[in-house]
Nucleic acid binder design. Structure first.
Lengths: 120, 120
DNA sequence: ACAGATGCATCCGTAACGGATATAATAAGG
DNA sequence: CCTTATTATATCCGTTACGGATGCATCTGT
């Protein structure tokens, strides 16, 4: 078991970790696909090099946010190099808490002022 | 002048920097008041020690996000130790861009799914 | 078969953070 | 008045996250 779960709702996630979690909400992905998904969903504002990607994956594995999955249902001829990852319950919970944290930020008067005009 | 302005809309702000910017939107504050404002506005989820606070202030000064201000309109009997800071145009712009970035994140399907039920 | 994209991994420098510590002025209480 | 807690700023230093560079192997398209 991980030494501490600390899903205690505090401490914000880093942007990189948040985007990786978000890319895995819809389903399992392998590392390289995560990189592409993050680039796509951030409109290329987040350029994740391999160092950041695999370093983050390692950390998130240690934190218990993700686990490696063996996609048994995939047809043959899958690229053997690929390593797939999926969210754990803890990872999903962390994502939810972070989304709610960001939502609270956007509900502050200062943030609302910014979004007036472009947002309902 | 700062060597590079790089308000180029990319690269996300750190949570600490975002919260400090947010605390200064309403008006100038001194360091210790920033610390209290951040704690309040984050419901104590962000515990900023003095190292983080004054280190971040120094960085934000170097980035041109904030400047020290001399509050001439304040009455006498002000605590002489206090050093007040206010947003620059660049800092305000950085805050706006970050708020919009977060807003885009919350508009993704994965994030919307989380907010369904608690949010319209 | 060759080029280019895919895929994973590590190394290492840099930036951000965060606790500890130090110092001093101010405020509060007995 | 004396003491203590709070306010206020600042630095030091260890840890963590990031991010470019590099390496290498595999798969794809022509």
């Amino acid at each position: 078991m991980p030494k501490t779960s600390h899903l205690s709702s505090d401490e914000p996630l880093t942007p990189v970790v948040l985007h990786i979690l978000m890319s895995l909400v819809e389903g399992e992905l392998h590392g390289y696909a995560i990189m592409q998904a993050v680039a796509a969903q951030s409109s290329n504002t987040l350029k994740m090099g391999p160092g950041t990607l695999y370093g983050s994956i390692k950390r998130m594995l240690a934190m218990g946010y993700i686990i490696e999955s063996i996609p048994s249902l995939l047809p043959v001829r899958e690229d053997e190099r690929r390593r797939y990852y999926q969210l754990t319950d803890l990872g999903r919970k962390a994502f939810e808490l972070e989304v709610q944290r960001l939502d609270r930020i956007l509900k502050t008067p200062a943030a609302r002022l910014v979004l007036k005009g472009s947002n309902p």
